[in-house]
Design a binder for these strands. Structure first.
Lengths: 356, 356
DNA sequence: GCCTGCGAGTAACGCGCGTTACTAGTGCGT
DNA sequence: ACGCACTAGTAACGCGCGTTACTCGCAGGC
């Protein structure tokens, strides 16, 4: 088959690197002409005939442009860099997916640099700097920082040299634009769902109360209750470690504390891992979900939420959307456009499954 | 503080791009001298004094080498490319982590290109090709292909142009070297663990019987039993869908089929998701883990195995190690060294938790 | 006094490409 | 016959850097 022959020839040639010059010679034209054709210059005057001759030569030789040389000559790399600890702790990996997809659409290349423990202020700060430095050496046109969980971060000083956007985190000491989940609205929609199902006495299994997730989600819960003329009983808010065990223990405490008639009929677990533990506590007591106790989670950690039995109704963190929005914002910045807002909130949609 | 001033100056200068030439002028030497110092040339004759003057200039100006230009001039990019669907389906994300870390150690940069649905032979083949093509345009020195689950794959033809290594998958039609988990040894160690705990009647919840994971793990299980003078009762091997629901149903079937005295005292679930479902089936019947029924899984999906109650004893897939080994193998290939073997098996360690 | 060798450095080429001049040829109006 | 506008294309510079070949001054040997 002719095609195979062509490709094999091409492969062989490529070993020594086919350049534009080779293509030009093969087509009997100047290198400039090849460049014009390949970059689809509008105001170039190349006849249809030579154009096609050039394209044939490209295919015959298996020419592939050298991205580095192009970047050097054109002074633009078409690369964005993203530094993230997500590679290490894959919880929020969808951020990368969303960013990748969007970058691909924009014909940009996303360079991913790992930052171990970006939350550490101490010794690891250097590592993060190294990642940033590496990316700047590649002459990325913009930088993204993505965190596994919503929090404030410190970004290396050198990030100021190119447009920078933070995803799932915010600049603790500067004015860098950021994309974060709307925790408050998420907490609100969760409790609204419970109210709608007729639950008025709702237990809350809390996270570390100082992190943005806990603050926001709880505030949202209060709002929803307030609108229904209710208040959040402080007694029903129990702290938990952000693990399944933590959720189990917290749920036990809340379930065992009251006689059946006073027992909350629903639990709002501020993350899915704790909901997983809560399931155990509920089932252990011979209670059913959602019949006796409704459960609603937060995060939509697929591996948990979709596999628990019954499947967990939860509020999703919009990781993929945040990633895409981050790249879009970065594109706007590099294009010199003013950004919409310092901090963009992305909605957290309710995912109805079977636990409410 | 002097440092801040310096950095600010540096930042400002960098906007227009500080080049080696600027450094050379600042230090009053030739650009060649700067190049020699920065690349630590051994046989270069640069006096200690000018060397330090150059280094000072570098810092004063905030010079940062241009990786693209360097790649162009030196004809080596220091980049590896990895094309993977893992970004999309993050199950095996530790492969990327392992590869990243190893690449970082080798002072290589890992370009990650997403391949949606690499398993599809049809329309998406093009996407995968596009990813490969993009990476080759960046002049990567080698390519890695990583799959989310162990299987045969078809690699785009153009991958033959540079050294290529497959991770967690193998070349279905060629001779590309690959790194895969030793499923057989893993199945063996799992069953050995159960035997050691005194279980001789072991139920197996199988996967799709044609995939390498199922074939290997089951073969390993048989080996372990054979060494103990036992055989695997075909009746005790039940098929399951690779989900929690699938595991639940399979476990129900196996548990309800026998009177108590004939019931298997242990379940070997060929993945953790099915083990998760099996837990439910067991608990529903008022049985305890591991008291009445021991459970052992496979994969070590952290979110499940570490959070189930009791925590799941399982066999880990060595993703991180495979990633690192992939990069090492690639480094050997690009250095022209012969590879050790076409297919390298990586051991699957047993992780003892509390379900056996 | 001249050649040799060495330390300390530099000029200049080329990597592959984008881009800005510029040229050569052709048709057309006067 | 001449100029003008337009088409089709090219020569040449520079992007930032690695690298080779070369220069220059000076100490040592005969």
């Amino acid at each position: 088959m002719a095609k195979t022959t062509t490709s094999n020839h091409a492969a062989a040639a490529r070993q020594r690197g086919v350049t534009m010059n080779d293509v030009a010679k093969h087509a009997g034209v100047s290198r400039t002409a090849v460049s014009f054709v390949l970059s689809n210059r509008e105001n170039a005057s190349i006849s249809e005939e030579t154009r096609s001759r050039i394209i044939e030569a490209v295919q015959a030789l298996g020419y592939r442009p050298n991205a580095g040389a192009r970047a050097l000559a054109s002074q633009r790399s078409d690369w964005y860099g993203i530094v993230t600890e997500i590679v290490t702790a894959p919880f929020a990996v969808d951020i990368i997916k969303g960013a990748q997809d969007q970058a691909w659409l924009d014909r940009k290349f996303l360079l991913i640099a790992p930052s171990d423990q970006a939350d550490a202020v101490g010794p690891n700060q250097g590592l993060e700097d190294a990642a940033t430095e590496k990316l700047l050496e590649q002459r990325v046109e913009g930088l993204l920082y993505a965190a596994t969980f919503h929090r404030g971060v410190h970004v290396p000083e050198s990030a100021n040299e190119v447009p920078t956007v933070l995803i799932n985190c915010f600049d603790a000491d500067g004015k860098l634009p950021s994309i974060v989940p709307d925790e408050r609205a998420g907490g609100r929609v969760a409790v609204e769902r419970l109210l709608q199902a007729g639950h008025t006495r709702i237990g809350v299994i809390n996270l570390d109360p100082v992190i943005p997730a806990a603050v926001g989600r709880l505030a949202g819960a209060r709002e929803a209750l307030a609108e229904a003329g209710l208040e959040l009983d402080p007694e029903l808010v129990v702290p938990g470690y952000a693990t399944a065990d933590g959720g189990y223990e917290a749920a036990c405490r809340i379930l065992d504390r009251y006689p059946q008639e006073d027992r909350p009929s629903a639990l709002f677990c501020l993350n899915d891992r704790m909901a997983m533990g809560a399931y155990d506590a509920i089932k252990e007591r011979g209670l059913t979900i959602p019949g006796d106790i409704a459960v609603i989670g937060f995060d939509n950690q697929e591996l948990i939420a979709a596999y628990l039995r019954p499947k967990l109704t939860t509020v999703a963190l919009p990781f993929e959307k945040m990633g895409a929005l981050g790249v879009q914002t970065l594109a706007a910045l590099t294009a010199g456009q003013p950004i919409i807002a310092d901090q963009q909130l992305v909605g957290c949609p309710l995912l109805e499954r079977s636990s409410v």
